[in-house]
């Protein structure tokens, strides 16, 4: 029942009209309250926390204002820059491969061939598995002493000595990226596939009549029409990947030393292992700021899209 139909049916008195306006806001009230309690409050609380100096000693008592002290401390910590760099590398590499492999698979599954439905569902399994399981399996496969990855690479003669993938500074982060790519491909594929299936068939037929080959069709029809889907997918991908915690935490806990540490793990360790709550909050706020900037860019781009 829309508001128009209601006012059209009973537009008797102005009092009633005022009532309706009032009621409308009341209907939104639960949502507003929900947002206030569960989204806005934690963010504001975190923001305030980041400007105080809260540790385990004064956690219960009075929290004095400490200005930018925690931010200064964070920006002076070399581990912060390692974690920031790793976060960016993790996000970029994960997305590039997830997206390109996902797109290739989506194009493949967009054709019809026998067994397509079954294979598509099987692909999704990787994404549906709990991360705890995926991460543990990867940890096991990549183990230097008994992992299957070493066994295969050695049998093929690609490496001669077993390699401790997760215990060496050079490969720990890369190993977590590989695991994360594996998890992300099916999701990318499904979203892109649903976008592909919504494309009008006539355009391709027309292009074919005009003599456009597969590559031209892809460049001039598929890509432009898929732009909105691609944009939202990449945006969601950046946000989701930038805040990945469980995969890395289970596989390496950010180690060895800090070679696979990323911002979410760094913030967690500060707050809940070292009990430096304010500094942990400052790291979360920095992450929040980075993601907000990206979200604004995305909104700008998508509103231009709509205007065009």
């Amino acid at each position: 029942m829309s508001d128009q139909s209601y006012s059209a049916a009973a537009p008797r008195t102005s009092k009633r009209l005022r009532n309706t306006a009032w009621t409308r806001y009341l209907f939104v009230l639960p949502v507003i309250l929900f947002l206030l309690v569960f989204i806005i409050f934690p963010i504001v609380y975190n923001l305030i926390l980041s400007f105080q100096n809260v540790t385990v000693y004064n956690f219960k008592g009075h929290h004095a204002f400490a200005g930018l002290a925690s931010y200064v401390k964070t920006f002076k910590d070399p581990v912060f820059y390692t974690a920031l760099g790793n976060s960016v590398l993790f996000t970029v590499l994960s997305l590039v491969f997830q997206f390109s492999i996902g797109f290739a698979l989506a194009l493949f599954f967009n054709r019809s061939f026998p067994g397509r439905g079954l294979m598509r569902s099987l692909m999704l399994l990787a994404w549906m598995l709990p991360v705890v399981i995926t991460a543990s399996v990867f940890q096991w496969m990549l183990n230097g002493d008994y992992g299957v990855v070493n066994y295969i690479l050695q049998s093929l003669g690609i490496i001669h000595e077993p390699h401790s993938w997760l215990s060496e500074n050079g490969t720990a982060l890369l190993s977590t990226i590989v695991a994360n790519i594996w998890v992300g491909i099916p999701f990318n594929m499904i979203i892109l596939l649903s976008g592909l299936q919504g494309l009008p068939e006539q355009l391709y037929e027309a292009a074919k009549l005009d003599g456009a080959g597969k590559m031209l069709q892809f460049r001039h029809i598929t890509l432009p029409l898929m732009r909105p889907t691609i944009l939202i997918l990449l945006m969601l991908g950046i946000i989701n990947t930038f805040k990945v915690f469980d995969m890395i935490f289970i596989m390496t806990a950010g180690g060895p030393v800090n070679s696979s540490n990323v911002l979410p793990i760094y913030a967690y360790q500060l707050s809940f292992t070292k009990f430096q709550f304010s500094q942990g909050a400052s790291v979360s706020m920095i992450m929040f700021a980075i993601l907000t900037v990206l979200a604004v860019i995305y909104l700008r781009m998508s509103s231009k899209e709509e205007a065009a």
Binding site: N143, D145, S167, E168, G255
Partner: peptide, 9 residues
Amino acid sequence: NYMSREVIT
């Protein structure tokens, strides 16, 4: 190599 380097995980 009397102890595996994997001990760190």
